[in-house]
């Protein structure tokens, strides 16, 4: 999965190793090599900057899908206080691939909802790799309507390969569940802020991402189709994902240019997993400042603002 990322990081790791060896050598032989070591350190820093400031869309994908990348619960723990998880759609079951609840953001009570991927195989099976069934979307909708009733802003975190393709999902109306969320979210009278933190996989992502403001992490992606599948369809070759990734315009920068998102949150060098605490700080700051703007809007203005935002989507 992350072989490309390893390729990306290889020269940096090799340089780090060299520096270590030199340090050890200097100790063993009692020679002062501090000037050389310092030079190499500087080289490493520059190399890191170069590598991560010129990432291709494909490399962004590798970071967005990195198994060490922070997932929803980590954001909840670091950014919010007093989180109480609320379960179930009241219709069928509790879907563990979408998690939601109530919490404080900077003393303001909010409803928090997000896709939850697993960190290991066992958790991934439980969380269905962050691919929700209809009941996940219906739970999210229940919690969003509850938020609206109690005038709580809604914060959603998006990180999913897509809605789950399964027999039962179809039987229970996967399409209807997503469609219903879009229709209902359009009418909610409280501010909604959506943050794409990892993979924004098509309709399965959009179903909880109709925010007044949509923010995106620097290395996150948001796409109508996975580049691998796109390559498979267009060029009959799923290994053409890299080419498709370029064509689909899926990076935060592209989406800001297309007017689909409102803000990019800068990540620590190399991606959020290199310094989760710094990442969480940036996300928290962004959420608070965006919420400060939206909090001032009347109920009517919030609905109108969101409607106008999505009404404008498309180029023709």
């Amino acid at each position: 999965m992350s072989s490309d990322l390893l390729n990306l990081e290889k020269p940096i790791v090799e340089l780090e190793k060299k520096i270590e060896e030199l340090k050890q050598f200097s100790i063993d032989k009692e020679i002062d090599l501090s000037t050389e070591i310092e030079l190499l350190e500087q080289k490493r820093i520059n190399l890191e900057k170069d590598t991560y400031s010129n990432l291709s869309p494909w490399q962004h994908i590798q970071i967005a899908r990195h198994f060490k990348r922070p997932s929803f619960y980590e954001y909840v723990d670091h950014i919010f206080e007093g989180f109480i998880e609320l379960h179930g759609d009241r219709l069928f079951r509790d879907d563990p691939s979408i998690v939601g609840g109530i919490a404080y953001l900077n003393q303001q009570s909010v409803t928090v909802i997000g896709h939850q991927k697993g960190k290991d195989t066992k958790e991934n099976i439980k969380r269905n790799f962050g691919m929700p069934n209809p009941e996940g979307y219906r739970k999210a909708l229940r919690l969003m309507k509850q938020a609206s009733k109690f005038n709580r802003p809604i914060i959603t975190f998006i990180d999913t390969p897509g809605a789950f393709p399964g027999i039962e999902a179809e039987e229970r109306g996967q399409g209807e569940a997503i469609a219903r969320n879009l229709l209902e979210m359009a009418q909610l009278e409280v501010p909604i802020i959506s943050v794409i933190i990892g993979e924004g996989g098509s309709g399965g992502a959009l179903a909880i991402a109709m925010g007044n403001h949509v923010l995106m992490l620097e290395h996150a992606i948001y796409s109508v189709i996975s580049p691998e599948s796109c390559g498979a369809i267009l060029w009959k070759d799923s290994s053409k994902g890299e080419k498709a990734a370029e064509a689909l315009k899926i990076t935060a920068k592209d989406l800001l240019n297309l007017g689909v998102i409102d803000d990019i949150i800068t990540e620590p060098l190399g991606g959020g997993h290199h310094n989760p605490e710094q990442l969480m700080g940036s996300v928290k700051k962004a959420l608070i400042s965006h919420l400060d703007v939206l909090k001032e809007y009347s109920k009517e203005k919030i609905v109108e603002h969101r409607y106008n935002k999505f009404r404008k989507m498309g180029l023709f």
Binding site: L182, L183, A186, G203, M210, S223, V224, I225, L258, M313
Partner: peptide
Amino acid sequence: ARMQEGILSLMQMAKTSAALAK
């Protein structure tokens, strides 16, 4: 959705559904 228009196609789902809400 029409793949060749990428994310803009996805956004049409939101746009049409929001209009239906009205």
